[in-house]
Write a protein that binds this DNA or RNA. Structure first.
Lengths: 340, 340
DNA sequence: GTGAAAGCGCTAACAG
DNA sequence: CTGTTAGCGCTTTCAC
């Protein structure tokens, strides 16, 4: 294993050096069982371990205990700025418990199943998933496999898996209310893919918020993905098929920036001619021109909470809340018309 | 292990079902040894494995073989937009080989050593490190431990570890040459931390490029980190202590954006009053105001190549090139004065 | 409080 | 081509 260096010191070597039995060493080195050992022996073992440079072999203990101190994280696209903070939250929670995190980038959803199979082979203790489409058979598979898992940034509508999400409906309500308050009436929506829960949740949020104000959705176009290109395409369609709305609520910041692109080409000025809102408050959207009014999500906390829930499950503390909903927040900048 | 579900099917169960010996199953399921097995038996084993839902236990094979099919990646800050594409490249390379990637966010450099120790305990087959300061004792430690490792985005000047980097000197030369070509003479530099290799490399690059043109660095301020805040602070110092330069070459985009912030506060207009260049071409810097002229790095390829080098090492193919240098590219946008 | 012994699931000589 | 055997390093009853 170690290409060079000494041939790896084992618990047996430590036992010998300390003049005790291996099982004693095992106990001495296990925080939970340390109490069973006399102070004197404990010291001797620790000293021997340090002196020999002992490093426990997790593979061996994993084989014996069935627990690997390892969790897997499935992300659709590490490169999408919403995920790094989520991952950071997960990693921080894991690190605090001495767990490591496998990260898998699930570029294509058909790869998800084989990746989960490999995670199962690795005997991860649990999974945090930021993927899952609506009614995903993968969720079934995981539930059946008995692997602990929690969804993040995506809820499981069937409730088979716990989840940590941001309140999409509230987010859109915040955006719509802001637009209405600044005098807009003809409000359109650039919707996310209706195959993913957030896509439908946000769309419903927009519609409901409008209804609450006695308004109807002026127009809508669905994006193929949460990307700038998809935003451009959808914005073109929206403008081609409809009278120009006074404002458009976008399903996310990237899509909003795609809308910026199209508007720029067409010489339609934001916010003079049209107001735009985003969702996510990605880094730098405060620096674009004009700075984007958007919805800020507690991304890092999303990840942190998801991991904490997962660890609770792993440790057998069954949860009360099976899905926790975090509060988003409106950030008003310059892409929406100021209040009159 | 599996909280519910059947009590895990092992190679033994498969052997029994297929009417062969366990070692035969082991061979049949190992791509490298499959050739040793008759077609008939092979089929029987595969069928039995599938029928029973057999899933190899990596912990067991890791214990036996000493190889975990696992590598570790150490990142200083997942949230910094340069790292996700690097990570993606690493992950893609690993996934192609059936390896998983542990990601550790090394927020504080003092945590690096313990994290590496834990990685060692996990028996990762290798490490990709995007951390390492200059003359980092950690590099020594790793070299001594015999663990395969390669640096990415940071070179090891002592050459103990292979590395994949972008050409910092060339990057700065590209920026300086562009500025000089558009008529600038008084050129300043917002330098990166001189404790990290990229910080000194880029600074030297700026100075050398200027010298090549018969010019000297007009002024310089060192940033405490590669962040927007540090950029703001450094830009303030630069402006306070010196006559205003005509252009400033920034060590990275975030720092350049920090410079934008203070210039904005002071009513100094970019590029009319001063030209600014960045480095990295992070997402969205084409959308800021004004769009940032910067240096684009092949981040994903950096990660990919680093992982490929690591796997070559792991497989014992000793490398010829111990440090590979990738070419950056100038992206001219609107933050620099156009050619006359 | 400590030792003895068994075995987690798999792979790799070694035979045949 | 397939079976036999041994054991990777650790944890965990079970004794004492």
């Amino acid at each position: 294993m170690n290409p060079n260096s000494s041939p790896a010191v084992t618990i047996r070597d430590v036992a010998q050096a300390a003049g005790v039995h291996v099982s004693t060493v095992s106990r001495a080195l296990n925080p939970d069982k340390r109490g069973l050992i006399s102070a004197e022996v404990l010291r001797a073992v620790e000293e021997a371990a340090r002196r020999l440079g002992y490093r426990p072999n997790r593979a061996a203990s994993a084989l014996r205990t069935g627990r690997t101190q390892t969790i897997g994280v499935l992300l659709p696209d590490i490169t999408n700025p919403v995920f790094p903070p989520i991952l950071q939250g997960i990693e921080a929670s894991a690190a605090a418990r001495g767990f490591f995190v496998f990260v898998a980038n699930v570029a294509d959803h058909v790869l998800a199943r084989p990746i989960v199979e490999r995670m199962l082979a690795q005997r991860v203790d649990g999974l945090v998933m930021a993927i899952a489409t609506r009614d995903d058979p993968l969720v079934d598979f995981i539930a059946r496999s008995g692997l602990h898992a929690v969804l993040v940034n995506r809820a499981d509508e069937s409730g088979r898996l716990p989840a940590v999400v941001s309140d999409d409906r509230l987010a859109m309500k915040l955006a719509v209310d802001h637009l209405v308050a600044t005098g807009h009436r003809r409000i359109g929506h650039l919707a996310g893919p209706q195959s993913v829960p957030t896509g439908v949740g946000r769309r419903q949020g927009v519609e409901q918020a409008l209804r609450d104000r006695g308004l109807a959705l002026a127009c809508v176009a669905e994006c193929e993905s949460y990307s700038r290109e998809a935003g451009r395409a959808a914005m073109r369609r929206l403008l081609a098929d409809n009278a120009r709305p006074e404002a458009v609520v976008c399903c996310n910041d990237l899509v909003a920036l795609g809308a910026y692109d199209v508007l720029g080409e067409l010489g339609i000025e934001v916010p003079r001619d049209i107001s735009i809102t985003g969702h996510n408050d990605m880094p730098l959207v405060d620096m674009v021109n004009p700075p984007l009014t958007t919805i800020r999500l507690p991304h890092r906390e999303l990840g942190w909470r998801a991991a904490e829930m997962l660890f609770d499950e792993i440790e057998g503390k069954s949860l009360s809340a099976s899905t926790v909903v975090l509060r988003p927040e409106l950030v008003v900048r310059k892409s929406t018309r100021p209040a009159a």
